[in-house]
């Protein structure tokens, strides 16, 4: 149960993650909204990037965590890893939905449409559907062991599918601008890049913090129910013996 110990150790620094997230986000928001100049081409609307891009990145990060956690669960069958998977799936779904929402708001002034079946929009929608399917699947199983196992299977298959979905819709249609930060260099000037970096780091920290809180929540929930269930059985037994 080494993972248990690691999780407990990381949980101790929970407050640091939360505080760091707030600091980075405040700095990022100040720079993004006030301190940075508008873009030469998109004007002020470019500021939506500072919230949209970090949300999208973080949800992908969350999906990776989900897949790794699911593999780990299938290997070690540690229930707290499953709690983490369930937590990260719910959070990823929220972040994906918000990334789509802010993206739609960005699309209206730049592409003049709320929604278009563009590649990245489509693949993010599919990602959201998979995550919602995952969460739904978990509510339809009675046995917590089966629930965790089936969830892990879906998460792994979905994760393997993700690059294929990405490429297929990318070839199918694409309108979204390419990534600005890639292996080939950065094409954002520094005045616009700094707030983006702050927001990205802040959002990742916020995600980690929320993940810790939610994992804790699910773990405590399980603990409480387990204890209650045990008490219930005890109650039946004592009634029977008397």
């Amino acid at each position: 149960m080494t993972i248990h110990r690691v999780i407990r150790k990381v949980q101790r620094f929970e407050g640091w993650f939360g505080g760091g997230a707030v600091l980075c986000l405040v700095a990022g928001l100040y720079l993004g909204l006030i301190g940075s100049p508008p873009d030469y081409y998109q004007g002020e609307v470019v500021r939506i990037m500072y919230i949209h891009v970090p949300l999208a990145h973080t949800s992908l990060l969350g999906y990776t965590v989900l897949a790794v956690g699911s593999l780990w669960y299938l290997w070690k069958r540690d229930p707290i890893v499953d709690n983490m998977c369930q937590a990260v799936a719910a959070l990823s779904a929220v972040f994906t939905a918000l990334a789509l929402g802010t993206g739609m708001i960005w699309g209206k002034p730049t592409w003049d449409t709320w929604w278009t079946w563009d590649a990245r929009l489509t693949s993010f929608t599919v990602l959201l559907l998979i995550l919602i399917g995952y969460l739904m699947l978990r509510t339809f199983v009675d046995d917590p062991e089966k629930e965790a196992r089936y969830g892990a299977i879906l998460a792994i298959v979905g994760f393997v599918d993700l690059p294929i979905i990405h490429f297929s819709v990318e070839w199918w249609r694409t309108l979204h601008q390419p990534q600005s930060i890639s292996m080939r260099g950065v094409s954002i000037s520094s005045g616009l890049l700094v707030p983006l970096l702050f927001m990205s780091v802040g959002m990742s920290l916020l995600f980690s913090y929320m993940l810790m809180v939610r994992t804790q929540l699910l773990y405590l929930d399980r603990l409480l129910h387990a204890k209650k269930g045990r008490l219930l059985s005890q109650f039946h037994l004592s009634k029977f013996d008397s």
């Binding site: 002020e44 939506i48 919230i51 949209h52 929402g101 802010t102 708001i105 960005w106 002034p109």
Partner: peptide
């Protein structure tokens, strides 16, 4: 749009 995006996001 900007205000909407930030509110929706945060």
């Amino acid at each position: 749009f900007i205000a909407g995006a930030y509110l929706l996001g945060l």
